[in-house]
């Protein structure tokens, strides 16, 4: 007997859950990447390099 019984709902929605999970992981990676770029360019700047903070 399986330790954890998988509900039918989980099987049925596997592709949806996987898709949402991967999308969220990708979103986190994008935000992380942008944060690193913004922070490593010195003071917080917009896309034109104009300082908008500090």
């Amino acid at each position: 007997m399986a330790i954890r019984v998988e509900h039918e709902l989980h099987r049925r929605r596997f592709s949806r859950n996987l898709g949402v999970g991967l999308t969220l992981a990708f979103f986190i990676a994008v935000i992380f990447g942008v944060t690193i770029v913004k922070l490593s360019s010195g003071p917080v700047a917009n896309a034109q390099g104009e300082v908008i903070n500090r």
Binding site: H7, E8, R12, R13, S15, R16, G19
Partner: peptide, 24 residues
Amino acid sequence: ATINQPGQTATPMTDEAQFGDYVA
């Protein structure tokens, strides 16, 4: 939402939306 109740079997939906349907 399929609520798990004793003695009740969940009926699978034949037209369940998949991730691709939301992308569409």
